[in-house]
């Protein structure tokens, strides 16, 4: 039980840290990766909270497909990233 507690607290701390990074890092590519990391850690949190269905969806969609979508759009916006 204590193991799950420690895991939850570590995951939550890293999630909040990468959320801040997703907003304030200078490079847009890093912010996209950080937003994907928030989703990935959220899916582990769902597994701890007894929601395996939601965890599968979040891992496949939130951190997989949406990250790729951001990158496809970012590729078209070369030059607009500083702003």
């Amino acid at each position: 039980m204590i193991y799950f507690w420690v895991l939850t607290i570590v995951i939550c701390a890293v999630m909040l840290g990468s959320a801040i990074m997703a907003l304030y890092h200078k490079s847009l590519a890093v912010t996209v990766i950080a937003a994907g990391l928030v989703s990935l850690l959220a899916s582990i949190l769902y597994l701890i909270l007894a929601a395996p269905d939601v965890a599968m969806t979040e891992a496949a969609i939130g951190s997989g497909l949406s990250t790729v979508m951001f990158f496809y759009v970012l590729r078209r916006m070369r030059g607009g990233e500083n702003g």
Partner: peptide, 13 residues
């Protein structure tokens, strides 16, 4: 945020 791309990332968080 000022950049629209960063606003969308904020929405995702």
């Amino acid at each position: 945020q000022r950049n629209i791309f960063r606003i969308i990332i904020g929405f995702s968080v």
